[in-house]
Computed example of a mutant assay.
Amino acid sequence: MGTFLTVSDETIKNGECTDIYFVRTYDVLEHDNRNPQVVMEVTAGSLPDPWAVFCGLSDVLALFDGLPVTVDAMPEGTVFYPNEPVIRISGKYRDFGRYETAVLGFICHASGIATSAAHIRAVAGGRPLYSFGSRRQHPAIAAMIERAAWIGGVDGVSNTCAPEGMPVVGTMPHAFVMCYDKPEDAWRAFNKRAPKSVPRIMLCDTFCDEKSESLRAATCGASAVRLDTPRSRRGSMRAIIEEVRWELDAHGHEDVKIFLSGGVTREDVIAYQDCVDAFGIGGAIAN
């Protein structure tokens, strides 16, 4: 085991991260000198929604690299339906049977994340979506999470360990704002010190209500205000968003956009995509 109770690549590659009954099966078959030619086919008997998105194939191919098996699969990002085969693996059973646990784990986890992202993408009305969900899972699999979310259709990801080529995006945490005496000091410091390529999205709910902080942030260089208030303080989120939008427009800040995050669900995206400019999605994708 690793320092953080993770399994090493070598252990997985050697087929040692598996269900115990596969080890016993292998031992009995080896004793009886049986190793039939078989085809393993993976399907989903049911899905939470009418369709899902296939993902995780890259890890399966890496797992079987060098083994005498044939893999036939959908391309990653393909939509599939219940009982539709997504991958077939052919070979001698003892050559790959113990890898079933890893194969299903790779596919189920990555496909679940890609599917969640895709369903939210489908209802977002063209609004930008960003994956903020790696903190909802073990950090050892952050790259997989962000890759699957990207395949599912997000516009960017937040984790610094995301695979190369994906836009890594983010705003600022509440802790950053709280390190200063007042929000304006934090916003101005961010505006001054952050790389010019980073959008000036200011977090606006740390010390005061969203409307007040949003108006103040707009005078400190904000290109957008981020609302991330815990749900216990929100009340009617639509009313809050509409009030922030009205106040920004009334004070001449029509160009300042609204970015919503903090426990945002698919239902929230449907409800607010007419009044929010972009969404940061965490657990609704990664979990």
Rank of each mutant, 00 (worst) to 15 (best):
T6L: 14
T6A: 14
T6M: 12
T6C: 13
E10W: 10
T11I: 12
T11Q: 13
I12K: 11
I12D: 06
I12S: 04
N14H: 10
N14I: 00
N14T: 07
G15L: 01
E16L: 11
C17I: 01
C17R: 06
C17N: 09
T18S: 10
D19I: 09
I20A: 11
I20F: 10
I20E: 06
Y21P: 03
Y21D: 14
F22N: 02
F22Q: 03
V23G: 00
V23Y: 07
V23T: 11
R24P: 00
R24I: 04
Y26V: 00
Y26P: 01
D27K: 10
D27Y: 04
V28C: 04
V28L: 13
E30F: 07
H31M: 13
H31Y: 15
H31G: 11
D32T: 12
N33H: 13
N33T: 09
N33F: 07
R34T: 10
R34P: 01
R34M: 09
N35R: 04
N35C: 06
N35Q: 06
N35K: 03
P36E: 09
P36H: 05
P36S: 05
P36M: 07
P36G: 04
P36Y: 05
Q37G: 05
V39I: 13
E41V: 14
A44P: 02
A44D: 11
G45L: 14
G45F: 06
G45R: 15
S46W: 08
L47E: 05
L47I: 05
P48I: 04
P48D: 02
P48C: 04
D49S: 13
P50S: 10
W51H: 11
W51N: 09
W51S: 14
A52L: 06
A52F: 11
V53E: 01
V53T: 12
C55I: 03
C55A: 15
G56T: 09
G56Y: 07
G56K: 07
G56M: 09
G56L: 10
G56V: 09
L57G: 02
S58P: 02
S58I: 09
D59T: 08
L61P: 00
L63P: 00
G66V: 07
G66D: 08
G66R: 07
L67P: 11
P68V: 01
T70D: 11
V71E: 03
V71P: 01
D72H: 12
D72R: 12
D72C: 08
A73W: 04
A73F: 05
A73R: 06
A73Y: 05
A73L: 03
M74A: 15
M74C: 13
P75T: 10
